[in-house]
Design a protein around this nucleic acid. Structure first.
Lengths: 231, 231
DNA sequence: ACTCATATTATGTGCAGACATAATAACGGG
DNA sequence: CCCGTTATTATGTCTGCACATAATATGAGT
């Protein structure tokens, strides 16, 4: 017998080891919390914490009464941290720069109006460039609902980006985020300083305050951008 | 006084409400666990669970002795579920199809060899197409280290994709995942049935078994693919 | 003033016991 | 044999208490 397991991390590691070693193969039902607690000589709450964490990571499936089993198809869960663009640039050791390109109040295109459920009210439209050193880093194309965030009407967004201003002034209750790839059209190519047709990584986000949409933004990253995380 | 808070979810909601209502503005130090527990009439462990969950979500910053404060720049954490391609297709209500395009044992290009740290040993190379209905859904380009997964040498991968086979036969301890965009070169365009130069969304993954690399894969999604999640 | 040891404090985690809840299994009546 | 009710079981969570740990604040000694 090796040294005893004392912490929930210890229990988690041991369970992970057994899964990995195929002691408990994919799909297998593992002992219940009380039994494991007895085996490891810890409280049930400790085992619970360990198994719950593994379940959140997608390695286990748990159901009341049915018990805990090893996930058949462990869906990899990638947690991406999406910081403010300024911090993202600074984390790469580059100097951050910002340039507002346009600020208008206009009727958004149909797809935006539909997504934001704003009907045919005009919205605030901001287009801005984020720089890393001298090179364009990302292009921000944003629509803001001034009906919800009235203060945005008084903000020029020349020195502070909408990206950061909204974080400080418009908390959201929930949102949706999407990732895709698109070919650069002429305006994006000109603004990002790349060839027309270049493949751009796009992040789009729609945020809500309860039932009302606050803002919808698309971030076009300069060619070659890669977003990464551990598993 | 409204109804009492009983559960950790209840505490979490109330804390979230106070942050959102600016009772506790960004950067503010909030009361300690013991005080909150007394205020809400619950045990400290309950408050701890609530605050810990909010901290994991990026809404709070916690440090021992220093206390808990509202995050200044709430880094949005997007958790992406990356299921097996077959399930991804089936979840869209389409019929899944699979076609192996190539299977060779060869020396990988330099960047792959470097990433996998396999020196100049030959690796198993699989290229396969995943279909949704009749349309190409994604192209899989995979390198497998047979030094770690010897059984892969005996598997033709004609009926079952490497994507699924590895999940069942090669558990990993950790990995890295990346997202980017790239222009389709001639082979990808031909295999995916799209124009050369189309912007493709690419997911790449490198998995390890302790210190040894198992496999590195790139998934090229057909044009227009969008990966989405809530916030 | 400055330095280093010591006290204090907030979070992190463990334990034992209890009850809640969801889902399955067992059972009994028709 | 089918169907609805009831018992059983494993997880989910709460409580109250204890001690561990990390980080800051304090203060003694030079």
């Amino acid at each position: 017998m090796t040294e005893a397991i004392r912490t929930w991390q210890g229990v988690m590691e041991e369970v992970r080891r057994r899964i990995h070693a195929r002691d408990w193969p994919p799909g297998a039902l593992i002992p219940n919390e009380a039994d494991l607690a007895a085996e490891f000589g810890v409280a049930r709450a400790t085992v619970n914490r360990a198994l719950r964490t593994l379940a959140e990571a997608g390695l286990l499936d748990r159901r009341r009464k049915a018990g805990t089993r090893v996930a058949l198809q462990p869906v990899a869960k990638a947690t991406l941290d999406i910081p403010v663009l300024r911090l993202e640039v600074e984390a790469r050791g580059k100097e951050y720069g910002y340039r507002r390109l346009a600020r208008t109040e206009a009727l958004p295109p149909d797809d935006i109006a539909t997504a934001m459920q704003t009907g045919d009210t005009p919205l605030l439209h901001i287009r801005a460039l984020h720089l890393a050193g001298d090179a364009p880093y990302a292009l921000e194309d944003r629509w803001i609902n001034p009906g919800v965030i009235a203060a945005a009407r008084d903000e020029p967004f020349t020195r502070i980006s909408a990206n950061e201003w909204l974080l400080a002034h418009a908390p959201y209750t929930h949102g949706e985020i999407g990732f895709s790839a698109t070919n650069a059209r002429a305006p994006e190519a000109a603004e990002l300083g790349c060839a027309t047709g270049s493949a751009l990584f796009v992040l789009d986000r729609l945020t809500w305050d309860h039932a009302r949409t606050i803002t919808r933004v698309a971030i076009f990253y300069a060619p070659g951008h890669r977003m990464r995380t551990g598993l």
